[in-house]
Amino acid sequence: MNRQRSTKQRALALAHGLILGCACLAVLIPLAYLVINSVKLPREFLTVPPTILPSEVTFEHYRDLFEDSKTVRHFRNSLTVTLWTTGVTIISGTLAAYGLARMRLSARILAGVTFIFLFIRFYPRVTTVIPYFLVMRELDLLDTVWAIIIGQLGITIPFVTWLMLVVFQDLPREIEEAALVDGASVLQRFYRVVLPIVMPSVSAAAILTAFLSWNEFLIASSVARRKASVLSMAVAGFVSDKGIQWGPMAAMSVVMIVPMIVFALFAQKYLIRGITFGAVKG
């Protein structure tokens, strides 16, 4: 069969390969160039033509970053925010979803709840950022990681609840009925019977939450200034400063991007399910 392929088919296959090759390059070249920039000598920035292969690989930008107490603080804050947001979101979101799924709500009410989730996912968040800033100012929480964490919870909890609600609704109730006969309480049923089954979905939700929280910028930048600032703000900060520090900016971006790429490679399925959730069912 293969030998007899016509010239036309071969030309098509070639075009197919070429287009996909270009698409892959369009993704890879920018990423590779960023990494290259992060190990370039300062004098090789802004050269014409741009230095594509640096004469020497230097890690000075990374060293400078991590010797700077500011960067260490950004990194620590980002980790703190991500861990807290993910932990609290997973616990309260999963519980809430289970509660909603088993409460025997009418279809109408469930539709209303779903609409609220959809609304929170997509309304212009910039609307609530200003009042949220004022509330945090009132509570004297401005420029603390707590202000960022609580603000992010407002986004991630409804999202995870929604995600898990769909999972619990698809779970046949018969699975729990055996335990019900044994007189197990809701808590026991949830913990012993339901949770082990839905664990993959819970991990998916956790990965997605960590991803959203780590990359989040709007809330963090509106309630944090100096003490509580996180990596996303630090990356953006290189631009607003006068005179861009190309090396540190590239290095910082790499530091920010790499964990998520590793996530994407190892937990691709979960991450994709989360990101496309709502557009694709389940």
């Binding site: 990423l31 990359n215 953006a236 900016m249 590239a250 971006s253 920010m256 990101i275």
Partner: peptide
């Protein structure tokens, strides 16, 4: 490979393209 841009923090993607689109270098 093709889905990688999507998982990058938008701020970082912005700085990345700022480097790429520099008009001179």
């Amino acid at each position: 490979l093709l889905i990688l841009p999507m998982v990058i923090a938008p701020v970082a993607a912005g700085t990345l393209w700022r480097i790429l689109l520099n008009s001179r270098a």
